[in-house]
Amino acid sequence: MKTLEYEYDEQSTAADNRSTKKATTSFPGEIIEEILSRLPAKSILRFRSVSKPWLSLISTPSFTKLHFTRATAAHRTALFISAYNFSTGKRHFLSAPHDGGPVTHLMTLDHPCFASIAAQHLNGLVCFTYHTWSSHAHAFLVNPSTHKSFKLPSPGSSMFYLFGFDESRNEHKILSIRKLFKPLAIEIMILSMTNYSWRKIDTEPPAFSWDGYHTKDGVCVNSVVYLMLESYDILAFDFRTEKFSLINTPQDVLARADAVKNNPYIIKINGCLGVCCHDFVDDINEMYIWILQNYENRIWIKETITFPEPWRGSGFDFSMDSINTDEIIISSSKFSKNVMTIPVYNRKSRCFRSLHFTPGHQFPLSRTLMFDKIGCYVESMLPL
């Protein structure tokens, strides 16, 4: 059985012997792996420097997969927060514990067209994109747990990217959609994180205007990535079959969208595709979620969230993300005295609770700062 060793210093208790002697203890590698796989990512990052055998173990794909599986089962989640400073023109990315506390600064990007982004969270990774004035999309991949980031190689003037996971091949992939003008056509390409190279695919997209896609984030559910269109239909692309399809949203969503002039958007909730829609009317203060519980038969289930205070002046944004099967986090720009408050809704109890985050001296809050993307992720040691 393979063993892993660690060393420690043992002070001699003999009165006449003040020297330090080293003792070496060995444990089976399987036991070390079991222990480490149950620890938070922050601890594992420190333990990589214990010894070369530990570093080798932690760096293996099998350990990365085991750790993520354990983190998912234990609901060991955290929050990925994006903030834009209008006075400096810089965008900041932060991570924070899912139950509140101090935030950790991950990275800062400086770009004049960085006021609006799309962020997609999947298996502990975050893929965020931004558009330049020429409407070209640029994408970064971030692992908030390891504090690592990677700029994706550009396939050209992409309109947007969709981040997904192919369960049949056990690999993350990114879909690029480009609009070509000479000749007029749509080019579909896929990047695999196995080799980080783009591959053009020959597939026929649904017939609709590619100029009319929604700017909200895409989501991936069961190897299928979804994007809300301007018509409020949902574009679906299956990474397993590499085929497109179109899903109609419930008629109730369309009627409500036309009535209150808002924009429904999609989220992933409890392993299912969901569509959110809200009312601006102060005396209603409700948000509605339609959950696609039966994909084959297109069966949607509606839920209603009632807020304890009016939307106007509350500091609530209209974007949501699912922390786990029961709770939904709601973006908020509400902060005072250097403390940011974020509401969390429990679908079982139908009650709200508040999370409080303290940026501190590392990242002080400012009135020119806007928090526009708050999503959850499961801790992952996946390398980029």
Rank of each mutant, 00 (worst) to 15 (best):
I81V: 06
A118D: 10
G274C: 01
I305L: 11
I330Q: 03
M381I: 10
S336M: 10
T77K: 14
C376W: 01
L162K: 02
E187T: 05
L246H: 03
I188L: 07
S56M: 13
F335K: 00
N285S: 07
N123Y: 00
F150E: 05
S223E: 12
I291P: 02
L175Q: 03
I44N: 01
R76F: 10
S87M: 15
F237P: 03
W290I: 02
S349D: 04
I177F: 03
S366H: 04
D211E: 12
L254I: 12
L180Y: 12
G375N: 04
K302V: 13
C127D: 10
H92A: 10
G315Y: 04
A78S: 11
L152Q: 07
H147I: 10
F239M: 10
D166T: 03
I305E: 00
L66I: 09
T64D: 09
H98E: 06
T3M: 06
R199I: 05
I284S: 11
S26N: 14
E30K: 07
C113K: 08
S380Y: 03
H105S: 15
L355R: 00
E7T: 14
V50M: 04
F352W: 06
S197H: 14
V221H: 01
V219Q: 06
I44W: 02
S134R: 07
G29R: 12
S19W: 15
I305Y: 02
K334D: 03
F140V: 04
C277V: 09
H67V: 03
S332Q: 01
W54Q: 04
M340G: 08
E309T: 07
Y196E: 07
I291V: 09
H214E: 12
S82K: 12
P144M: 02
S116E: 12
I329P: 04
T146G: 05
N338R: 01
S354V: 05
K52Q: 12
S56G: 04
K151S: 15
A119R: 00
T25G: 11
F86N: 13
S87D: 14
C272P: 03
S82P: 13
I58E: 05
R70G: 12
D282P: 14
F165L: 02
G89H: 07
K22Y: 08
P343A: 00
L125T: 01
Y295I: 09
F318V: 15
V224F: 03
G315T: 05
R178C: 14
R91C: 07
L39A: 05
N324I: 11
Y226A: 03
G29T: 11
D282K: 13
G89M: 08
L184C: 10
A73V: 10
R46E: 13
L57K: 01
S19V: 11
K216L: 07
V281D: 14
I330H: 03
K173V: 08
H121G: 13
L106H: 00
R347M: 15
K216C: 14
S37T: 08
F63I: 07
A74Y: 09
K173F: 07
H105P: 10
E10L: 15
K261H: 13
L365I: 02
G89N: 07
T24Y: 13
E5G: 03
F80Q: 01
P28G: 12
K216M: 13
W133T: 14
R48K: 15
P206F: 01
P264D: 04
T241S: 12
I329V: 09
H121C: 15
S223R: 00
A139M: 08
S19P: 11
F352N: 04
S87E: 15
C351N: 14
Y265D: 11
T241G: 08
L122V: 01
L292K: 00
Y265W: 11
